[in-house]
Design a protein around this nucleic acid. Structure first.
Lengths: 150, 150
DNA sequence: TTAAATAAAGACAAAAATATCCTTTAATAT
DNA sequence: ATATTAAAGGATATTTTTGTCTTTATTTAA
């Protein structure tokens, strides 16, 4: 027993976010990328990434095409797709709604000992994720202001 | 593949926080509780909780005594022990310092695409955890204002 | 129409987190 | 001293998450 980890999101979710940002950052006209290209761009395990992309296709955040020149593209408007949607698709909404201490019935009426303290954090986090759209974030990458790997 | 979880802390960490709060909430004079009592109070698996309490003893957040009337007590001043310390002891400091998207070298110079957005959240979270002391939180439990289980 | 490219799907493997059980050690009380 | 109580430690089991591999299905291009 020697835990040294626990971060905000699962690895699957991180790969999903990174992949979505990468695809969103593709130049106009050629907005389709294959699995190999994506997992190379975000430095993620290829086969595992494939599974995650499948999930994103299922929830219609991505569209996919088989065959030569196939691959994945953002489905919908990158301007209105938020990181919150990607997180919800992969990790579910526990990060937005779950009790920090794991109480099943934690609420205003029956709060856990840190309920009110975490409420503010959650609202801050949720608000940020809801207002972070793919387009804006992908632009940072295209401008060389932020990075998808290392 | 059907993830539906991911919360802020590991279960181990949640049990640790709850256990610390419970022990801190014990009445003056009798501030020692056994494993059974603790895991019943916080509704956690007994044997697993034992391992976590051991860790907390090792990092000297708890003291322990064997034999009849043995058990666990807060080591030090509950007024100055913070939730941040408990989290760091069990989950490490990734929650405070790690990159949200998992980049190894994420920094101001080489930021991930959401680095700046998460910075504020992290600071908010860290500040809150650093200023939440056991004493204050345990009082809420003693006053019947908050709950350790269900 | 066939070959090549690519995603989808399913089975499987490895690693980590969670959880249990059993034995040992230490303290207390009789 | 001895029996009892309770934590410590170690081995093992289960579940979840992460990751791989192989086959199938679909599309494109020659």
């Amino acid at each position: 027993m020697s835990c040294i980890k626990e971060e905000m999101f699962s690895k699957a979710c991180k790969y999903a976010i990174n992949a979505m940002i990468y695809v969103a950052s593709l130049p106009e006209g050629m907005q389709r990328a294959g699995l190999k290209e994506i997992s190379k761009a975000i430095d993620s395990p290829e086969a595992f990434t494939a599974k995650i992309l499948q999930q994103l296709v299922r929830v219609e955040l991505l569209s996919s095409a088989k065959g030569p020149h196939g691959g994945f593209a953002i489905q919908g408007d990158p301007n209105t797709i938020t990181i919150a949607q990607v997180v919800a698709a992969i990790d579910g909404d526990m990060i937005f709604t779950g009790c920090a201490l794991g109480l099943k019935k934690c609420s205003e009426d029956h709060p856990c000992p840190v309920h009110h303290k975490f409420k503010a954090i959650r609202e801050h986090l949720t608000g940020m994720l809801l207002t972070s759209n793919l387009k804006e974030i992908a632009e940072g990458v295209n401008d060389g202001k932020s990075f998808l790997k290392y």
